[in-house]
Design a protein around this nucleic acid. Sequence first.
DNA 1: TACCCGTGGTA
DNA 2: TTACCAAGGGT
Length: 362
Amino acid sequence: MMLQNSPKPHAELILAWYDRHHRELPWRVSPSSAKAGKSADPYHIWLSEVMLQQTTVQAVKPYFNKFLSLWPSVNDLAAAPVEDVMAAWAGLGYYARARNLKKCAEAVAAGHGGKFPDTEAGLRALPGIGDYTAAAVAAIAFKRQAAVMDGNIERVVSRLYAIDAPLPGSKPLMKAKVVELTPPDRPGDFAQAMMDLGATICTPKRPTCALCPFRDVCLAFAEHDPERFPVKAAKKEKPVRQGAAFVAVTPDGEVLLRRRVNSGLLGGMTEVPTTAWTSRLDGGTTTQHAPFAAAWEPCGTVVHVFTHFELRLSVFRARTSRVESTDGWWEPVTSLDAQALPTVMKKAISQAVPLAFAPAKP
DNA sequence: TACCCGTGGTA
DNA sequence: TTACCAAGGGT
């Protein structure tokens, strides 16, 4: 009598899929390369994981390559001026990540002899490394059996088990499922496989279930409505804030810039002088709040959407002499690209000086 | 715990 | 066009 085939474990199903369909990424060692003896560089894995926090692969790729070219090792990054790191990060968002990236590099260089800790707990203690990044680096770079949880994996797991409880309350349950699923032999590939599946097959909208290795075991597919998962708590609507930005230009083509405080919104980044951003404009004319008296001309409005509010910025321009500034400096328009200017500030400056920045690369 | 923290792509 | 949301962390 033939032995009945037992169903393949979930990890086996998705690892077989990953071996055939994994994405090629600049920081990734493919399964075939790993078989040939190549191992992941912890610095590359850490750098990519921090950049990938709430950020798409597409957006990260050019920044990852730029950082590796500027700072090939964690010791190079640790030795770099923080201003250079902020300028290189400009445009990627969530700028506390850049400040913590620098702190973490310094801790690894000074406290660990330039080597990253090779355990989840050791990594978790470093600046900018939370539960997700600690588990991901431990699993991918050091082959530790760490359970990696991110937005992709939450979606895959919530569908696999048709979890009705809403996020974020259901996170502990999902984590328990991932702990069960994570295999001891290829924990890093398993995590990357789950994330690749979430990014390419088990997508938020219109998942391609026909191509999914979990199709025959997925409870959400069996219910014919995978898009119902993950169930999430209702979110609040975004308030609107308003403010004014002042672009002062000298006849020599210099713009007055300031540096924002090191904490909070756009912390440590460069800006043009602005008013406070409040729920409504305070009384009086806006130009009363300009950095100095001048013939300020209105030149339109910039709208920029942050995570938790929408900003409507009235932009004013003035041609002025090189007024002395106590808390700022005059920067040639031609070197604005090297500044740590967040996107909202580039929008404001472009509104006042249309040719301030080179057109974006195609 | 709940809130704060950017940006750009997609449907 | 609006809404969603992407390899989350800090406080």
